[in-house]
Design a protein around this nucleic acid. Structure first.
Lengths: 330, 330
DNA sequence: CTGGAATATGGAATCGATTTCACATCACAG
DNA sequence: CTGTGATGTGAAATCGATTCCATATTCCAG
């Protein structure tokens, strides 16, 4: 690999002048510029980003920490992030934690060592240890998907969305409504959505049957098992509609209902949340909430860039919009 | 941010000794080591990766160029790559080209400037310009998903897989078989799979109807339109089975067939390729080919690491296994 | 008790860029 | 013709680490 020194020698100028040509700063005679440009072309010289970063303290890299890349939600967010950042010459250093909370903190340190210009955390569960570590950070930082006190974050209005969909189900005439949630450690999906469901039911003076409120993990099978528990509870009563906090959960539940010979939405209605691609192509298509994941990625990228530029350095919250998508499952 | 110089001053030793403690090399007295460790803890010092890389010529970063992150195939591959690399302390710098061939080459240069230790290209269409650029590369390089002459690559045995599924359809008793492909610029999915289909038909002395061989793009709607063209050809004949080169194409086709009131697989059978999550949950579930995408990611990561270690520096091809998954759509 | 190996430490060069500063030349206004 | 601002260039410091080499001390074998 050629270095700036080689170019300088070939072009018979100093390294300083080569640097001036590359960065288009200061005064350079046409003659010198031409010789440098020729030398660069001949050697295929590319300036080392590492040496540059060492000197300028700018890396043009944003670290992105994510829980698991191979989910639709996350990959759409990342897609938005990379697209937006690339417009400004920034690149993304990925850190995939695979849902391991220890790795989350490790990666935070690793990214610090790489002196990335900013860090975006795509969050699901947020441990106290992580929050502590985040507050120690001195570089621009933002969270996507959850709300963390004192930290800039883009999150979905999970409460309102879940409230809306519950009200929608009620408006359709249902009074016996089941709920499939996830552990409350996930603030947004687990806690907020459940709280909204319960509140909406109370606000409409509808009864809450404890057997009808089930907790599952994030996968499809888990949704299947959760609704099974609902139907096999001793009191032999079953809801006429079920709200699942994710599409996959809803789809798992639909499997069970079909196996049991129940017709959707005739015998029982069901709704999901997330508008995954899956939700559009199952039979019947799933009524769900559409979140603008990619837009959220773009948004958080812009916020980080603003912070790097020194604008907008204070904490900021923003909730992204959603919309209810009515299909045939309810 | 504290630097090695600060630590040296606090611990009253030279920078050399601090470096020795950090990297656990050479001789350091227990006393000195203790003071350095204390200083590091007190200041929260993290060595700069940039400075280190500049000196050692090792970045511990692998560049990954991909066409589009938000597809299941790619995100599963990336998941395999990051997981495997993280075991060896490597990180991934992502370059998302969003299917822009110009960006592919730009990113290749960008990654070179960052002096990544190796580059993995997840490929769909491979232009000649790109191949030329690849051959100029001096750092470890591997391709995932396509075969490029003279370049280490992991690819799927697309020809054999497509041949197998065609034979499978024929064995089920079908003789009038349609095909939905993609442009042949995509060597693996477009060219090889089509070639295999045609060969299998010939080998079984079955007729090829030109109206029944359609070309589509990669999305679901495109599959819908392709089969529509098949059914609306003037000769009024329709195949009794259709092979689509991707699951999404197959799913688009299924939509059309359902709208037309045809029963799958009774009136017409259909198959996809890829075993996307979608394929399992559509109705009826899709017969398809399962590829081990994540395993492929792990495999290519290991190959790159071997190359970095100097082992296995020569060109290498390897084809990953697949298996036919029979479901109810055929 | 002496010489070589093992232990311990630091000075200084180095990696490849940017940036500050000093200096040289030139043009032109007054 | 002289002073001043614009133009052009390079020497040297700098960023934050690693590493080679020199040097100092200690230890033990012969």
């Amino acid at each position: 690999m050629a270095t700036i020194k080689d170019i300088a020698e070939i072009a018979k100028v100093s390294r300083t002048t080569v640097s001036r040509v590359i960065n288009d700063t200061g005064y350079v005679s046409d003659d010198a510029r031409e010789r440098v440009l020729q030398a660069i072309k001949r050697t295929g010289y590319i300036p080392s980003e590492y040496a540059k970063s060492l000197r300028t303290k700018q890396t043009k890299v944003i670290g992105v920490i994510l829980p698991k890349i191979s989910t639709e939600t996350v990959s759409r967010m990342v897609s938005g992030i990379t697209e937006e950042l690339s417009h400004y010459g920034y690149q993304v250093l990925l850190a995939n934690t695979n849902l391991d909370p220890v790795l989350e903190i490790d990666y935070l340190k690793l990214l610090k060592a790489r002196q990335v210009d900013g860090i975006i955390l795509v969050a699901t569960n947020v441990s106290d240890a992580l929050i502590k570590e985040i507050h120690k950070l001195t570089i621009p930082f933002a969270v996507l998907g959850q709300e963390i006190p004192g930290v800039t974050s883009i999150h979905y209005d999970d409460y309102q969305a879940a409230y809306d969909i519950t009200r929608h189900v009620i408006k359709k005439g249902h009074t016996s409504i089941g709920f499939i949630g996830v552990p409350e450690a996930d603030q947004a999906v687990g806690y907020e959505r459940k709280r909204a469901f319960i509140q909406a039911m109370r606000d409409h003076a509808l009864p809450l049957n404890e057997h009808w409120i089930q907790e599952a993990k994030f996968d499809i099978d888990s949704g299947n098992e959760a609704i099974k528990r609902m139907f096999e509870s001793r009191d032999k009563l079953a809801p006429t509609a079920v709200i699942a906090v994710t599409d996959r959960l809803a789809i798992g539940a639909m499997q069970y209902l079909k196996e049991r010979g129940l017709s959707i939405p005739h015998d029982i209605g069901i709704t999901g949340m997330g508008n995954s691609e899956l939700s559009r192509y199952v039979t019947p298509p799933l009524t769900t909430i559409h979140y603008h994941y990619k837009t959220a990625g773009e948004e958080v990228a812009r916020i980080i860039l603003d912070k790097i530029d020194g604008k907008n350095n204070d904490e900021k919250k923003s909730a992204l919009s959603y919309r209810l998508i009515e299909r045939d499952s309810l």
